[in-house]
Design a protein around this nucleic acid. Structure first.
Lengths: 230, 230, 230, 230
DNA sequence: TATGAATGAGAATTCATTCAT
DNA sequence: AATGAATGAATTCTCATTCAT
C-alpha cells in the first residue's frame, strides 16, 4: 500500500498500522499492549526518562514479558519509531519509474493542498510516535542518519522536482530551490505542530486554515508579475 | 541590559552572559567549568541521558562538587535553561510603558529584518542551550508552563501589535493575526534551525538568505493590491 | 553390564550408554536431544553459566519440554553426571564376592596397563561428561559426597588390595599404600588429562606413551633391589 | 620481588600479597573486604554461581561499592585471578639472562625438592585463589589462553632445560622430555591437590611425604643402570 | 571550598519454571 | 506429549546524592 498525498488516507490508527506491518506475523494482545504503553510513556517522558517497569505496569504485563518481544529497551524504541519514520516519508518516495515528477498536480497550490492535508492527517494519526521520533532523533545517531541521509535527501529531491517544474512554468519565483523548499516546509510544519502540539485544544477550522496557509505560501513564492514567462 | 532587535547584540558567549546574570554573585572557576560541561553533555545526550558523574569528569571537578552549587541535577538544568529562556524572549518583553507597540520600524519588512538578524545572532551564541531548551521542554511541565504561559503569550501580544499596526496601514493582508504570526514565525524558525542545526556546515550567505526570506514572507502576507487601504 | 579393566570396552558413545541405563524406560528422541544439548552446553559454559533456554534451542525443543523430563535444571545435571560417575568407578567396584583382590593380574604393571587402557578409553568416550563432572563436583555437595564417600573409598580399597598384594610379593616398595596409590593415580590421571584435555590435538602414540608411563610408575614404585622378598 | 623455589617464601597471606601488587596504589579497607569476600564466595560457589549481592553482604559494603572498584563482576574475578596466575608461575620465568638453565641444583632431586616445597607453600597461601583459578579456567577463554600460551609454554621451557641437563648427565632416563615433565608434574600436582584439597584434614607429615614423593619420581625417571653415561 | 568514598534505590535484563492450550 | 507465552524473582549494574574529611 503506497501512500500518496492525493489519496485520502483512511487508515484508522497507528497501532493497527503497526500491526499491519508484519503482514502475517501476528502480535499477541500482550505485545500490542506493550507497544501502546511504550508509545504513551515514551511520548510523555522520553526514552531515557522512561522505566521499562512503567511500561510493563501500564501494559498490564510482567516486566520480563517486554524482553521476550524486544531484546532491549532500545529495540522497543526502534520497533516503534523506525517503521513510522519510513511511513512518514513514504509518499515522497513513490517511484513512478524513471520520473521524479508527479504530474498529477495542475498548480503548486494543488500540490501543497494535497501535501498538507495528507501529512496533517498522517500526523494526527501518528501523533505520539512522531513526537517520540522528534524527541529522540537528537540522541540516536543511527536514527538521525537514517532520517537525514536515507530519507530527507529523497524527499528533497522529489519536492525539488515539483518546484523546478512550476518555476519553469513561471508560477514560482526564480530563487534557489532549497530556499523555496525550506520556506514551504517550515510554514507547513509550523502549522501542523501548532495545530497538534502547541494548541491542540484550540478550535480549529482546518479547511480554512489550510486555504490561508496555501495562500500565504503561494503569494510568498509567486513569481513577480513581470517575470512570468510567456 | 535589555535586548532589543534593533540593537546589535555584541555579547560574545553564553557563558559570559550566564556569568553576568548573577550580577554581584561571582562564580568560581569550578562552577563555570561545571556549567560549561553540563551544557555540552546535556546538549549531546539529553538531561535524562546524562550522568552527573560525566559532567563532573568533563568539568574536572569531583562528583560532590556539583552538588555544592546545585542542590539537584534538575537545579543544574534549570539554572542553565531558565535564564536563557528569558533572554531568548527578552526583546519581545521590553516595556516601553503603556504601549505595546514599538514604533521604531517603518515597515513590517524592517521589523522582520531586525527580528531575524537579532535572534539568529542570539541563537548562534546560545546554540547548545537552545538545543537543550527545545529538547527538554516536553518533559518538564514547569519549563513548559513558563514557556507557554509566561512568555509565549507576551511574545504573541507584542508581535500581534506590530502585525495589527501594519495591517491597518494596509501593508498586510487582513486575516487573523495568529495565522499571520504563526506563518511568519514558522518561516523564521525554520530558517534558523536549518541554518544552525540541520545544515550548519553548508556555506551560507546569511545576508542574502535573510533578504530572500523577508521577501518570501513579505509577499506571502502582503495585502492584495486592491485591498490596500487608503 | 559390568565394566572391567581387562575387558575391551566397545560401546560407542556415551549417549547410547546413557540410553541403555534406563533399561526398558525408552527415551524419546526429544529427550535424547535434550541430553546431548545439555552435555554440550554444560561442558562449554558450566552448569551455572548455562541457560536452559540455550539447551532447549540447541536441542530443537521448546523451553517447556525440558521440564517435562527433568523437574529442574539440577535434575538434568544429575541425570547426566550421576550415572557416569558410577560407571567411571564401576570397574573398581566389581564384587567377586568375599574377595577384594582381583587375581587376574600377574604383575602390577599388568594391572596398570589394563587400568590405563580401559579408563583412557572410557574417558575418551565420556569426555564431555567427565569434564562436567570435574567442573561441577566442587559446587554440589551431594555430588562431592557421592564421589568422595560412596566411591573413592571403595576404589581406594580395591587398589589398595592390589598394591598390598604386590608389595608382599616384594615387587613394590614398602611405603604406605595411600602414598603409592596417590602417586600412581596422579601419573595416570595426569596422562589422561593431558592426552584429552590439554593437548588433544597433539599427535599421540598411545601405545608407546602408555608403556613409558608404566615404566616410569613401575620404576618409581619398584622395591629397592635388596628389598625384594624371596 | 622474584620468587625462586630455593628461597623460602615468608609472605603471610594472599591478601597482603595482592595489596603489595599495586605498590603505591593503596586499597581502602572496603576494597580489601570486597576482595576477601569475593575470594571466599567465588571459591565456594564458583564465579557464575555467585551473586554480587552476596559478596557485598559478606564484605559488609553496599552492592554499589563493588562496582566503584570493579567495573564489572568479571573485572573483579580477573583482578583476583590474573595476578595470582602470574605469581604462580613466576619462579619459572626468572630471567637469569641468556641462560634458561638455573644451575643452582646439584641433582634433579634437589631441583624437585625445592620446587615441591616452594610451590606447596605457595599453594597453601593462595589456596582459595588457586581453587578459583582452576575452576574458572575452563570457562574464560582469555584466562585459558593466558594460562596456556603466555605461561605454560615458558614453564615447560624452563623445566625442559633442567630435564635435558640431568638427562645429559646420565641421571635421567632418555625418553622424550614432555613425557618426563608430565610425569613429574602430575605426581607433584597430585600430591599438592590431595594434600590441600582432597584430604586437608588428614594428618600430614610433609617432610616425609615430600621425600617419598621425590624418591618415587626419582626412581621412576632414573636412567637404567647400564645407561648411565660416564 | 572541595573531595571522592560510599550509599541504596532503582534501572535493565536474565532465566528457571509454570501452565493453558 | 509438546509447546511457548508469561511470569516474577533475582541479577548485574547505574547514578543522584550524602557526608566525613
Amino acid at each position: 500500500m503506497t501512500e500518496h498525498f492525493s489519496a485520502n488516507n483512511n487508515t484508522e490508527d497507528w497501532a493497527q498500522e503497526l500491526l499491519a506491518l508484519g503482514g502475517e506475523e501476528k502480535m499477541t494482545p500482550k505485545q500490542v499492549a506493550i507497544l501502546q504503553a511504550a508509545v504513551d510513556v515514551f511520548a510523555e517522558k522520553g526514552y531515557a526518562g522512561t522505566a521499562t517497569s512503567e511500561i510493563a505496569q501500564k501494559a498490564g504485563v510482567a516486566e520480563g514479558t517486554i524482553f521476550r518481544y524486544y531484546k532491549t529497551k532500545k529495540d522497543l524504541l526502534l520497533s516503534i519509531v523506525g517503521p513510522t519514520m519510513s511511513r512518514l516519508l513514504a509518499p515522497f518516495v513513490i517511484r513512478n519509474f524513471g520520473n521524479l515528477l508527479d504530474k498529477s498536480f495542475d498548480s503548486y497550490e494543488d500540490f501543497l493542498r494535497s501535501l498538507i492535508r495528507n501529512r496533517l492527517e498522517f500526523a494526527r494519526k501518528n501523533f505520539k510516535i512522531l513526537q517520540i521520533l522528534i524527541q529522540e532523533i537528537p540522541f540516536h545517531p543511527n536514527l538521525r542518519e537514517q532520517f537525514m541521509e536515507d530519507i530527507m535527501s529523497k524527499v528533497f529531491e522529489r519536492i525539488s522536482a515539483q518546484v523546478e517544474h512550476f518555476k519553469q512554468k513561471g508560477e514560482i519565483i526564480d530563487i534557489p530551490a532549497p530556499t523555496l523548499i525550506r520556506f514551504t516546509a517550515s510554514a507547513i510544519i509550523g502549522y501542523i505542530m501548532t495545530r497538534l502540539l502547541l494548541q491542540p485544544n484550540k478550535e480549529w477550522n482546518d479547511e480554512e486554515e489550510i486555504e490561508l496557509l496555501i495562500r500565504l505560501i503561494g503569494h510568498g513564492i509567486a513569481a513577480d508579475p513581470g517575470d512570468r514567462s510567456v
